[in-house]
Design a protein around this nucleic acid. Structure first.
Length: 450
RNA sequence: GGCUCCGUAGCUCAACUGGAUAGAGCAGCUGACUUCUAAUCAGCAGGUUGCAGGUUCGAAUCCUGCCGGAGUCGCCA
């Protein structure tokens, strides 16, 4: 399973969190369903974007060394965070890079900047409780010849040719002119048009290296590839599935889950993620403000194919009303019951569960019993959000039962009757166990006291 | 214009892959803390599931066409 895979040109921002959290929870879910899951991050560290990153850092580097004429140029990344990267660059290399030709400093700074960005990204993932099994490098696929090999394989299959594409239908394609280019015959596998694999400067397109990456995953023994992508990559699905089909002969070998975009808001106003101004809400900021559990739960309390407004002000100020607390409170309450002095005298192991006859108790038992089926269904549907909603329902039943005991003392968990108490404590314990297991899928912590 | 996704209570969202009277939270109203934790609970009110057809014993769910919103549309990743 591949998820996050944010470009290493800046820190993770708040919108990245959604795909990261949904992907990670889905990985947990499939893992618990019995699949052998490998979690991967694909680093897009080749091509123009990281070249521009290097140039941007070089500008900041010159500024850091007192060059007042150095300006962030059009197209460069203007974010303040690159000043930190530049400062580290000065620390490591002094002013030696100033005297190099671009051909010399660019690859050096590029790798330095990518490493720095990835360090920041990995740190944020760590805070999100996301642990990747593998980071795959696009750059390495290119230099290793894996891309050439993949293209040769496709060529042998007769799926690569030189051709000219038709003008796209989009209204703003004014500058279009026909060009002959190296194309992959993706229309053989259901795509709308064939797709370019080589740029006019002779280097591979992103699609070409992505093909090599997917072939690499297949070669490592995965029979099912799962990608979590932002909805803005939706137009890319057909060609990627086409490429994988070309290798496996099976169009279902690649499963792509699209996560709809997050609209960042702050107090009802949309936050413009301005490239020019370099302004955005970083994931780190959000985690500072609300913490991992709240963020993860928020991202999991709506379906992936539903767009979402993430209001920074609302989330940070109303954090007490966040539904994650509702479930955590149920777990804390259950834990509290099991902490009572009387409980030490009770032998839960031999509890006679036939003593649980109240309709509210029965309802809770049925819900607990349905947990494995809920997990299985959520796994089959690739919908981790169902676990979050299940837990909220479960917590509601437990809170309800708790308050029954408040109104009617005979329904309290701890009673004068040791046998009845044992049965009820077992129910309480089971509830806590299921909440913990559910939280484990969501990557949320179950706390014992609130 | 093509393709993908969405449209459910005033607001934010569910609905176990086509099942029974479409459910929660927030907002509003009425109640419950000397108690195993009130970050909780009980109740009231709130709906022609965007619109119109179709398939089916049965549709929020599947099909077609509209309306509205989001995304995307030749070598940026």
């Amino acid at each position: 399973m591949e998820y996050v895979s944010a470009n290493p040109t800046g820190p993770l921002h708040a919108a990245h969190a959604r795909g990261a959290i949904i992907g990670d929870s889905l990985a947990n879910l499939l893992d618990i369903c019995g699949y052998n899951v490998t979690r991967e991050y694909y680093i897009n560290d080749a091509g123009k974007q990281v070249e521009m990153l290097a140039r941007s850092v070089f500008t900041r580097y010159k500024q850091a060394l007192g060059d007042t004429s150095a300006e962030v140029l059009e197209g460069q990344y203007p974010g303040e965070y690159l000043k930190d990267t530049a400062a580290k660059l000065v620390e490591t290399h002094g002013d030696t890079l100033l005297h190099m030709d671009e051909a010399e400093w660019l690859p050096l700074i590029r790798q330095f900047a990518i490493d720095d960005m990835m360090q920041s990204i990995k740190s944020d993932l760590e805070r999100l409780n996301i642990h990747m099994d593998r980071f795959s490098s696009e750059h390495q696929l290119v230099t290793d010849g894996a891309v050439d090999a993949a293209m040769n394989t496709l060529t042998d299959k007769g799926l690569i040719y030189q051709g000219v594409l038709e003008k796209p239908k989009a209204g703003n394609a004014d500058e279009w002119e026909p060009r002959e280019q190296m194309l992959f015959r993706s229309t053989d596998f259901g795509d709308d048009v064939d797709r370019a694999v080589k740029k006019s400067d002779g280097s591979w397109t992103y699609f070409a290296s992505d093909i090599a990456y997917h072939l690499d995953k297949l070669n490592r023994g995965s029979d099912t590839l799962i990608n979590i992508w932002g909805a803005d990559h939706g137009g890319y699905v057909k060609r990627m599935k086409s490429a994988v089909s070309a290798f496996t002969g099976n169009k279902d070998s690649l499963n792509i889950q699209l996560v709809q975009l997050v609209k960042l808001m702050d107090g009802g106003q949309q936050v413009k993620m301005s490239k020019r101004a370099g302004t955005f809400v970083t994931l780190s900021d959000v985690l500072d403000a609300v913490g991992r559990d709240i963020l993860r739960f928020i991202m999991l309390t709506r379906r992936a194919d539903q767009t979402m407004d993430f209001d920074y002000a609302e989330v940070t100020t109303q954090s007490r009303e966040n539904p994650v607390f509702y479930v955590q409170y149920a777990h804390a309450r259950a834990s509290s019951v099991l902490r009572q002095d009387e409980v030490a005298q009770i032998n839960m192991a031999d509890a006679d569960l036939g003593l649980l006859t109240d309709s509210n108790e029965m309802a809770l038992i049925r819900q607990l019993a349905s947990f494995p089926r809920q997990v299985e269904a959520a796994g089959q549907a690739f919908e981790p959000h169902r676990i979050a909603f299940y837990l909220m329902d479960l917590a509601a039943s437990f809170h309800g039962l708790w308050n029954k005991g408040r109104d009617d003392a005979s329904l309290r968990f701890i009673t004068d009757d040791p046998k009845l108490t044992a049965a009820r404590l077992k129910l309480v314990d089971a509830t806590a166990v299921v909440i913990r297991n559910g939280f484990a899928i969501l990557g949320v912590e179950a706390i014992k006291e609130m």
